[in-house]
Amino acid sequence: MSGFLARRLGQSLVLLVLVSMVGFAILHLAPGGPMSQFASGSDMTQEDLDRIAEQLGLNRPLPVQYAEWFWRMLQGDWGRSYRDGEAVLNVIGSHLGATLQLMLTATLLAIIIGVVIGTLGAIRRHSIFDTLATVGAMIALSIPTFWFGLVAIYVFSVWLDWLPSGNRFTPGDGSPLDLLRHLILPAMVLALVETAIWSRFMRSSMLDVVNQDYIRTARAKGVPEARILLRHAFRNAALPMITVLGLQLPTLLGGALVTETVFTWPGMGRLFLDSISYRDYPVVMGILMFSATLVLLGSLLADLLHAVADPRIRLG
């Protein structure tokens, strides 16, 4: 375990530094960086600008600037929003809850449905059900999430008038039922692609397992077929699925951004788009870095969970 842990942590740290370099590079491409703000903002002379650059340290070599920027990030100083001067991390923090709620609900839905579909598909491989599930998953992965959201709104809000078409709650209400009613559509829309991903991973994991020698051993012992599938095969097939939690995080975050836009869901994705349209680069870059870090930590966490759950990896 400790060997695996150390190796995995080391990899993640290296990756974190590289991620920050990519982020820093993009930040420096930004035409709306601090200097152009000053340059365009008022009638400053070149000397004034140079003086400000000097004060802000912007005239120093890039590696120095990067090191300082990275160090400040580590300490939680991610800059301030151009819009209201709020600290970037605070701005992100106040939108994170809504995004997490949406992502967790969708993931939960997707895991339950996807695992069931994938398992059944693998058990009845090449049956009509399996064929439909496979083709369906491929189509689900081809549907633009925002369009699926529009269609869902059209069907469930406009046409059937069952569910609200956006926002996290009705102003002045906010009861648990109201929250739930608002959550259903966006969670369903975000879950579509996720379900397809989980069902395909689960199907192939299950197919790997049912061809393993130990499944043959279980049959040779006289274990009933249902028990072989549910106890022996399912457990072994489900374990590596923990790592899928990490693998699909980038897709999940991207999907959340689009879903939040369609459903005016007040999360990080909407904040990101709003910040882009305001050219609020500190927040844009903050969210970019934040989401990459989230992906990094998420996959690290998923790998660690997998290691804890799988007796084979425990020794490392």
Partner: peptide, 22 residues
């Protein structure tokens, strides 16, 4: 290849929109 890993940490749409804004 580590650089590839790092870029893959960024959700594509976030990266794409951030760049598109520039």
């Amino acid at each position: 290849m580590r650089f590839v890993d790092a870029v893959l940490c960024f959700p594509t749409i976030f990266l794409l929109l951030a760049l598109a804004a520039l």
